[in-house]
Design a protein around this nucleic acid. Structure first.
Length: 173
DNA sequence: TCAGTGATTAGG
DNA sequence: CTAATCACTGAG
């Protein structure tokens, strides 16, 4: 196991997203305990032209972090209750992010962040240097199978983008 | 199926 | 300031 470095995150989101499957999300809690979670489901949000991406409406205080270099964390609240965990990818001024939808043991992005105790304080966290949240790769899982499908909950994105198969799932059963 | 929930955003 | 929006969940 070793922590993923910046060059992993600075690629195009469509490369990074499927590549995150089979990797481990590692969280060090406030009591110093460390837990690792296999990433099983992600979605790619790609730039200003992707109408499902929050950055499609332009740069705002909330989406600002997506315009940074890959390797940062984008966290936001949805439906007044649930924090969503995203990982910023690509280079400066290219707004892309990967939504972590599922990890082993927890299905659903809302439950995931609740279990990992992730909230707004993680907005902008650097996954390369952070002491409480990062990603590790495992040499064991060299062979994995990936399935893709349209993204969830983005009917507003228009015909072209809502049907893009930018949701990736692990299926090595 | 559908209500709860509050940050974020655009518009006066 | 106000009103609309929303990458979800759980109860029924």
């Amino acid at each position: 196991m070793k922590r993923l470095q910046k060059n992993f995150f600075t690629r195009d989101v469509l490369e990074v997203a499927p590549d995150l499957l089979g990797k481990y999300l590692v969280r060090r809690f406030d009591d110093e305990s460390v837990q690792e979670f296999l990433i099983t489901e992600v979605e790619a949000y790609r730039g200003q032209e992707d109408l499902a991406c929050h950055a499609s409406k332009g740069r705002t205080p909330r989406t600002d972090i997506m315009y940074h270099e890959g390797g940062h964390v984008y966290v936001y609240l949805i439906y007044g209750m649930y924090w969503m965990l995203n990982i910023v990818t690509a280079t400066k001024d290219v707004p892309q992010a990967v939504l972590i939808r599922g990890i082993e043991g927890f299905d659903g992005p809302g439950k995931l962040t609740k279990s990992l105790q992730i909230d707004k304080s993680f907005y902008g966290e650097n996954l390369v240097s952070s002491e409480r949240l990062w990603i590790e790769s495992s040499e064991k899982l060299s062979e994995i199978k990936i399935k893709s499908s349209p993204r969830i909950g983005i009917d507003y994105a228009g015909e072209e983008y809502k049907n893009k198969p930018w949701r990736y799932l692990l299926c090595n059963k």
